[in-house]
């Protein structure tokens, strides 16, 4: 990878970014030596527990937090090399939404949405049509003249999204955008984000502590723990084959979210986790592998669902019978392209 903005392939790129804060007991690294690249058009998620450094990391992308060391790129522009004024101009191309919406309480929805346009020097006449367009995009046509205090949480976040999109940004940063919302509202905001991503080709980077968010809309994910990225890749790869303890925690959270805690295994059997992805989901592989052998198969926990658009399944099965036959079944599963992991 070259030094400069690797050929403009990435929209956002961080190179060895570290952010430390000076506290009473010495300095604390909120973000440690993180490098990542986000491509145009993708939805990139960063998940971690609270205090993992997600908020600091996303703020290093538009320099609301200036990295202590390392560099931040936006397209071909190195943000960390810009003056205050140049940075202000670049920030207009980077939209951002927040957990607590951060709307101006003293002005109407319409004026909130127009705020970035006013900053860009547009007059009321010039922005009126654009604001109407944005109100329609987020489904708030009827609420333009209300004040934020008259809206529900979900509506406030829609205003936040409309405001973030007003100046036609190339990327949208979402700081725990759904964490203050109930599950239903979360889903409606997530589908709005996904439709904006698909319709406008807008790149989205989001941070969250909810697996639900990552699973529903993200293409790629980075898992953060104690200021570092411990795993990064396509959402399916990361969560179906987690290698780090924190990732596994989130993966378990997802399967528990969908199917409850697994039943305990009985004596003399083996517990096997089987994954299948995409078209495999429709194949009767497990049935085929057990058929004709002396092995009995019981499903203790199972998920058949979708990550964004890709169907996947994850079964926790108990195989009982002669040990050799069990091994035979596992081999058969693997030779059919499934991921079978013997847990105990």
């Amino acid at each position: 990878m070259g030094r400069c903005c690797p050929g403009g392939i990435n929209l956002i790129e961080l190179q060895n970014v570290t952010k430390s804060y000076k506290g009473r007991g010495g300095s604390v690294d909120a973000v440690r030596d993180i490098s990542l690249q986000v491509k145009p058009g993708e939805i990139f998620g960063i998940i971690g527990h609270s205090g993992a450094g997600k908020s600091t990391l996303i703020r290093c992308m538009n320099l609301l937090e200036r990295p202590t060391s390392g560099r931040a790129w936006f397209g071909k522009t190195e943000l960390t090399a810009l003056s205050e004024r140049q940075l202000q101009a670049e920030r207009r191309k980077i939209g951002m939404i927040f957990q607590h919406f951060n709307l101006l309480a003293s002005v109407t929805v319409r004026e909130n949405i127009a705020f970035p346009l006013v900053l860009a020097g547009k007059s009321r006449k010039e922005y009126a049509a654009r604001v109407d367009e944005l109100l329609a995009l987020v489904g708030l046509e009827a609420h333009g003249d209300k004040y934020p205090s008259q809206l529900s949480g979900g509506q406030k976040q829609r205003v936040g999204i409309a405001r973030a999109l007003a100046a036609d940004p190339q990327v949208l940063l979402c700081d725990e955008a759904t964490s203050a919302l109930d599950p239903q509202t979360t889903n409606s905001i997530l589908s709005l984000l996904m439709s904006i991503n698909e319709k406008l080709g807008l790149t989205i980077i989001l941070i969250t502590h909810e697996m639900q968010v990552i699973r529903s809309i993200c293409d790629r994910v980075a898992v953060m723990d104690a200021g570092r990225i411990v795993e990064m890749g396509a959402v399916l790869d990361v969560f179906l084959r987690p290698t780090h303890a924190v990732t596994r925690q989130f993966a378990d959270e997802l399967s528990e979210l969908e199917s409850g805690t697994p039943l305990p295994r009985r004596e003399g059997s083996k517990l096997v986790r089987v994954h299948f992805v995409g078209e495999e989901t429709y194949e009767p592989v497990l049935f085929e592998a057990v058929k004709g052998s002396a092995v009995q198969c019981a499903i203790l926990q199972g998920t058949v669902s979708r990550m964004k658009h890709t169907p996947y399944g994850q079964l926790l099965v108990e195989l009982s019978g002669p040990e050799r036959d069990i091994d035979g079944v596992i081999t058969a599963l693997r030779s059919n392209g499934l991921d079978a992991e013997v847990l105990s």
Binding site: N62, L64, R85, Q88, A89, E90, R91, R92, I94, M96, F98, H100, N102, L103, L104, A105, F115, P116, L119, A120, R163, A167, L173
Partner: peptide, 14 residues
Amino acid sequence: DRGIIEAAQAMGAS
């Protein structure tokens, strides 16, 4: 609210 100031900064406000 500091969050509102931060939002304005993120929008490129001087």
